[in-house]
């Protein structure tokens, strides 16, 4: 059953049918949707935009190049080049290095002072906690964007290799 769902969702995504969660009534699949479907959804902003969707929109209106996404790496750059009908090229160095392992954030809970700054930074709501209480990262939801690391005043957030997906 789960495999079926996985397959359906993935096939939809692969076919470029970005079933965007917020879209209510069925609407036309725009170029931005198709670009967005190819992006890794790390939401790390290394592409210099406010997330994957804004980057997709920028590409669609010709305001950005196809090689700005380090988490996507060569594969994403290639897929984007294919979609846009341009020559593929490697990810630009100025946007950061392509990570070789997926990583997730981990809060050293003894050190956490409960300032909630990381919660505000997390683009995908992967951190739970309350003011002046210990915070923690939901590893399964963390995309590894590292946006929570700079705001932490006590430097208690570290990146760790992502746990293997349980099947």
């Amino acid at each position: 059953m789960i495999t079926a769902l996985v397959t359906i969702v993935v096939l939809a995504a692969l076919a470029g049918v970005a079933s965007v969660a917020t879209a209510g009534a069925p609407r036309e699949i725009s170029l931005a949707d198709r670009i967005d479907a190819l992006l890794p959804q790390t939401q790390c902003r290394r592409c210099t935009f406010e997330g994957c969707r804004p980057y997709a929109e920028a590409i669609a209106r010709g305001a950005a190049d196809i090689n700005q996404c380090p988490p996507g790496g060569e594969r994403t750059a290639k897929a984007l080049a294919g979609l846009m009908g341009v020559e593929p090229k490697p990810v630009g160095k100025e946007f950061g290095v392509v990570p070789d392992h997926p990583a997730v954030a981990f809060i050293e809970e003894d050190a956490c002072i409960g300032c909630t700054k990381c919660i505000q930074a997390c683009p995908v709501d992967a951190i739970v906690g309350a003011s002046r209480h210990m915070h923690t990262v939901i590893a399964a939801d963390c995309t590894g964007c590292e946006l929570c690391i700079p705001p932490c005043p006590v430097d208690c957030i570290v990146m760790r290799p992502a746990p293997a997906v349980a099947r």
Binding site: V10, A18, A21, R53, P123, V124, T143
Partner: peptide, 18 residues
Amino acid sequence: LDAHLSAHAARARFLARN
């Protein structure tokens, strides 16, 4: 397939948060 699935979930959470 797993990566696509989690990207899908991440997109949904990102948009919901925005």
